[in-house]
Design a protein around this nucleic acid. Structure first.
Length: 887
RNA sequence: GCGAAAGUGGCGGAAUUGGCAGACGCACCAGACUUAGGAUCUGGCGGGUAACACCGUGGGGGUUCAAGUCCCCCCUUUCGCACCA
């Protein structure tokens, strides 16, 4: 797709003498809209190296906010820069268009979700266009359209085939405000991620899950393959995956003698250990996960989570216990609702039962404790008060036995007698005592040997536990991807055959606030015939979590119109991984862990070759105002439209890059936008005035001999190019890039009248003006386009090569060397940059200020840092110097 | 509680490698043009002083000829994790 140059470089109308973004910007926007191929990625055959730069796709709320503007301004600057660097750039945009707000809007305004969403998309698209963002709109994707979501369904079927999607009944997080289930990742501090103050409830429901835990190990390990991700994000993901290495150990419940039958429990098969069950008598085992099996001889009780199945059995035989357990559970529920679950004081109750420690063979009491979590490990822990902080606190409260079984390797006091360590003592660099045959081993060695011993003896094994849970994707909502499953009375669970995809989301639906999945109330959707037997069957009426949509959307950009497959493998092989992904840190766990999972899953399906979707990740800071995040309730929201109307898109974008480095929070100050607007007006004035003169120097070489002014201006130009080149390659401090351009422009405008009188050679002026425009493009594309058209160049601005700086021209010939006396600045001397050290010393001694500063003192040392600074270390010549006030 | 990042003029920020602290912008002050400007231009602008001196990068100590930058202790703010056995 050849890019035609003509329309782009046509100065369309008479230029106003003053900078008028309200006139310039819409005119160029229209020109760009008429040429969508201008920003289109070229095919792989273009021979250019590829560069995939991506900003996180927005939810179409209907209004861009300043956070979006900042995000896109960063991405757009980079995309434009990389184009000029000669890359084949893919810079697409789309819409994360399913989700609850559309249903809420439907309730409020009686507008169908689809209509509402598409109208919002159109509105935001207009805002993006107005900002002059260089997106390849031919690749736009909208996740709520069947062309897209059918592939969610297709993936679901693949996952189901491979057992990676499964249905199970379990306790799930329920947000009463969203009226739907949430994934673990969507619960923040016990509350819904969208409703900060709404506590998540636990409900027992049958739900679809994706087996993210299959990839737990790889998701963790491959974080090491992402050195270009912020360390903060990697740490958050590591914490979230939460790998713990340890062992499972079975404790056997001691049969109850009072009961007479010798045994009164049913055998319970805990899911982590297979237990062979004799018919009579049945040994009941409690499996425990521990990372400190080395301290097992110090276990003085077992602690079960209140929800542990065995607890219910115990309680069935004791009214008092049943009452206590109910108390614990009620308290936990209240605490969760108030969001203070973590602050609960530890407490619990003895069950009256005992279990045998398989190592020491000693019986220890079984308790129920509120600090044991049912959803981590096995829901049961061995309590070692001497060597665990939580157990210590609990044991102290209930006066449980404390047994010390590890001691420091070194004698821990001056008397040379090993004393009891301060409890709880958890140091792993210790030795075991009172631990049977393991006494004397180091902790780490003991951990290996004891886990192996447990396995040998059949009462345990080494084990790894993760905090990461499978991803629950069922949502009891309407506006999402239908899950392609059919329930048949005869055939059970039947996947929708691939050739019947997509399962279309019905558009005619009454959104009400009634409970349950809205689709269940649409008979023509829910009622279906079984694909296998043709009998009456029922569709799954839950929809998918919208994070499914965003887990793979960036692959679809590479092949957005494909109607046979989600994408073609070769296209992915060319474009992936994403070179640069830019977005807010709020998705550090959610989107960024799901999409890593999805990539690995697709790789295992043979669809992609890359292990990771994103090579480099950049998380930009928030936009704040008056020290606080912008929000309607605080009344400090600044509207992008408003800024654009007052100052133009260029000034708005440029301010978003100028006010702070992109990774830091940015305080929005409207006066600052006005400042940028004034700066752009100066650029416009200078460039337009210089243009006729500069044209005379077009295609001319720079003169052999440069006068002082030419030299000075060219030096500044090349220093500026160097600065920008390095920043784009390195740390992205666009604020200093813009400051550097301002310095250049300040130098130019200071010489405006001299330039007007012809003091600068036309070729020099041409070079300066042209390069200034090229540098400006990344930050103020409209003004750059306008001025470029005045240059009457043939190449479209976006394809013009990025200027190369000339070190020789950038080099200073004279520099100011600071001269310090005892580290304090005393003089600045002007010397040639290439001065010899000898001459520099001579110049220092010759300087009158230096002479005054060292008069009457002895110079004991001279430090010369070539090209940087001179420091004279002096001391008073003699003790008789009249500093006599030391009386 | 644990971990990470940050703290520099009235404000946003700069100082990339230990080498002139405060680039650039905002605000403010003075002036020019203008028969009353939310325009433009010129100059000033860390504190202090008549001018120097001197003081100054959260606080305290240290290393060094030289510290915003390196080391130790402390304070504050933001973020992440927080019964994970």
């Amino acid at each position: 797709m050849a890019v035609t140059a003509a329309p782009i470089n046509t100065p369309a109308v008479e230029r106003s003498p003053r900078y008028n973004p309200a006139e310039i910007e819409p005119r160029w926007q229209a020109a760009w809209d008429a040429q969508p191929e201008l920003y289109a990625a070229e095919p792989p055959t273009s021979g250019k190296p590829k560069y995939y730069v991506l900003e996180m796709l927005p939810y179409p709320s209907g209004q861009l906010h300043m956070g979006h503007v900042r995000n896109y301004a960063i991405g757009d600057a980079l995309a434009r820069h990389m184009w000029m660097r000669g890359y084949n750039v893919l810079h697409p945009m789309g819409w994360d268009a399913f989700g609850l707000p559309a249903e809420n809007a439907a309730l409020k305004n009686n507008t169908p979700p689809r209509e509402w969403t598409l109208a919002n998309i159109a509105a935001m698209r207009r805002q993006m266009d107005r900002l002059g963002l260089s997106y390849d709109w031919q690749r736009e994707i909208t996740t709520c359209l069947p062309e897209y979501y059918r592939w969610n369904q297709w993936f679901f079927l693949k996952l189901y085939e491979r057992g990676l999607a499964y249905r199970k009944n379990s306790k799930v997080n329920w947000c009463p405000s969203c009226a739907t289930v949430l994934a673990n990742e969507q619960v923040v501090d016990g509350c819904c991620w969208r409703h900060e103050l709404v506590a998540v409830e636990q409900r027992e429901l049958e739900q679809w899950f994706l087996r993210t835990t299959n990839y737990a190990e790889e998701l963790l390990r491959d974080l090491d393959k992402l050195p270009e991700w912020p360390e903060k994000v990697r740490t958050m993901q590591r914490n979230w995956i939460g790998r713990s290495e340890g062992a499972l150990v079975d404790f056997t419940v001691v049969p109850d003698e009072k009961d007479g039958r010798g045994h009164r429990f049913h055998p319970v098969k805990l899911n982590l250990t297979e237990t062979f069950m004799e018919p009579e008598p049945e040994a009941v085992k409690i499996s425990v996960f521990t990372t400190r099996i080395d301290t097992i001889y110090g276990a003085t009780s077992l602690q079960l989570a209140p929800e542990h199945p065995l607890v219910a059995e115990f309680a069935a035989h004791s009214e008092e216990l049943a009452k206590n357990i109910k108390g614990l559970l009620d308290e936990q529920k209240r605490a969760r609702e108030m969001g203070v679950l973590g602050d609960l004081e530890k407490h619990g109750f003895p069950t009256g039962h005992f279990a045998t420690n398989p190592f020491s063979k000693e019986p220890i009491p079984i308790w129920v404790a509120n600090y044991v979590l049912m959803d981590y490990g096995t829901g049961a822990v061995m309590s070692v008060p001497a060597h665990d902080e939580r157990d210590f606190e609990f044991a102290k409260k209930y006066k449980l036995e404390t047994k010390i079984v590890i001691l420091p390797r070194q004698v821990n006091n001056a008397e040379g007698v090993q004393k009891e360590p301060l409890l709880p003592y958890t140091e792993e660099n210790s030795l075991l005592i009172n631990s049977g045959e393991f006494t004397g081993l180091g902790c780490q060695e003991a951990q290996q040997k004891m886990a192996a011993y447990a396995e040998e003896q059949g009462f345990g094994k080494p084990s790894v536990t993760y905090r990461l849970k499978d991803w629950g994707i069922s949502r009891q909502r309407y506006w999402g991807t239908p899950i392609p499953i059919i329930y048949c009375a005869t055939d059970g669970l039947v996947p929708v055959p691939e050739d019947q995809l997509p399962v279309l989301l019905p558009e005619k639906i009454d959104i009400t606030q009634e409970g349950g999945s809205p689709l269940a109330r649409v008979p023509e959707f829910a009622r279906v015939t079984c694909p296998k037997c043709g009998g009456i069957a029922r569709r799954e009426t839950d929809t998918m979590d919208t994070f499914v949509d965003s887990s793979w959307y960036f692959y679809r950009y590479a092949d957005p119109k494909n109607s046979h497959a989600p994408f073609e493998a070769e296209k992915i092989a060319y474009w992936f991984p994403i070179d640069q992904y830019i977005g807010g840190v709020e998705h550090a766990i959610l989107h960024l862990i799901y999409s890593r999972f999805w990539t690995k899953m697709m790789r295992d399906l043979g669809m992609v070759k890359n292990d990771e979707p994103v090579e480099r990740l950049f998380t930009q800071g928030m936009v704040i105002k008056n020290g606080a995040k912008m929000s309607k309730s605080k009344g400090n929201v600044v509207s992008p439209d408003d800024m654009i109307a007052r100052y133009g898109a260029d000034a708005t974008r440029m301010y978003a890059l100028f006010a702070a480095p992109p990774d830091r929070d940015l305080d929005w100050q409207e006066d600052g936008v006005a400042g940028i607007s004034r700066f752009l007006a100066r650029v416009y004035r200078f460039a337009t005035q210089a243009m006729p003169q500069a044209h005379a120097g077009r295609a001319q070489p720079l003169p052999q001999q440069l006068n002082a002014l030419e030299q000075q201006l060219l030096r500044k130009l090349h220093q500026t190019i160097r600065r920008l080149t390095q920043e784009f390659e390195g740390r992205w401090h666009f604020n200093t890039c813009i400051a550097a351009i301002m310095e250049l422009v300040n130098d130019l405008t200071a010489q405006e009248s001299a330039i007007g009188q012809g003091a600068v050679n036309a070729a020099v002026l041409y070079s300066i003006t042209r390069n200034l425009i090229l540098m400006l493009q990344a930050f103020a594309p409209y003004l750059a386009a306008e001025l470029w058209s005045q240059m009457a160049e043939d190449t479209p601005l976006l394809r013009a090569p990025w200027p190369v700086y000339d070190e020789a021209l950038a080099a200073e010939d004279t520099i100011q060397i600071p001269v310090q006396v005892n580290g304090k600045l005393r003089a600045l001397i002007s010397v040639p940059v290439a001065i010899s050290e000898e001459d520099l010393r001579a110049a220092v001694w010759a300087d009158t200020k230096v002479q005054a500063a060292i008069a009457g003192k002895e110079v004991v040392k001279v430090i010369v840092v070539p090209g940087k600074l001179v420091n004279l270390v002096v001391r008073a010549t003699s003790p008789t110097t009249p500093s006599t006030d030391a009386a």
